[in-house]
Amino acid sequence: MTLTTRPKADKRPPEKNNVIPRKPRSRKRGNAGERTLRNTVIIVIGASLLLLTAYPIGLAFVGSFHYWNPLSGAFDFIGLENYTDLLSSGEFWSSLLRTGVFSVVVIFFRVALGLAIAVAIFSNLTRGKAIFRTIFYMPTVTPLVAVAYIWQMMYNPQTGAINTFFGLDINWLYDPNFALPSIIGMTIWKDFGYAVILFLAGLHSIPEDALEAASVDGANAWQRFWSITLPLLAPMTVFVVITSIISYLQAFVQVLVLTQGGPGTSTQLISYLIYEQAFVKYDFGYASAAAFVLLIFTALLTLISFRLSAGRKNSLEG
């Protein structure tokens, strides 16, 4: 047991003619200022979250149980009808499945390409690293709408660069076999640079000692990558995957610009379905129900990713 004693206050008066030592800045006063700043920041952030995030989400949740058309002012309680309509709609399930396929493929290539290129740039053999970093990151900072319009031109079967360059004769955006892959291809090109930069940051944080020790032990480059680099990049990989899941389950702009969900509904992703219901048909109730189902799927997938990552971490540590 330890006893703490409060130091006794020095009650002696300051000696005459002595220079009065500068009073140390009141800790209490300093804390008070800090506390005010902290409270202000927290209140502002909290209020913003409540107003701009929690309130709309709450309203959408309530609205999902109503026939809700904000333009006509209709807000009639219909119970679970929007959800039952949604879950019995073939269009909804096919859109959801398509969104899943889109997300898995794009995330796979984003991670694989991002990692491969990051490792290549990180290699000591590579010169002009900054140039490569810039080149690969450039599509990421280009507005998606502009990129989509350029790719739309490139996909033109008669005058587009892709068919012309490769001597192909494919109607990329209108053939149901190629329309979704075309959107996937454009999205990968647009977004893999983000993964490159994150993986490069991850590579820079790997302790050189570990890699050197492995080299001394006779591990070749491939073994070092599989046994040291890749496991140590796991947290970054999980981060890229989770942010990608959240982002791609909501993919919308590329569909709007390239195909408007067509031909038919063969490229209709779940966000586009929500958009059509909300802003073409103004059925906000049904759109809100679809958005909530999407939210649940996103949360589940994120949770699974976290669990898988934690399990892998435990097995490595164990």
Partner: peptide
């Protein structure tokens, strides 16, 4: 439009 696209392309 969706119906025609379904017929023509799908």
């Amino acid at each position: 439009t969706k119906a025609w696209e379904d017929v023509v392309y799908n």
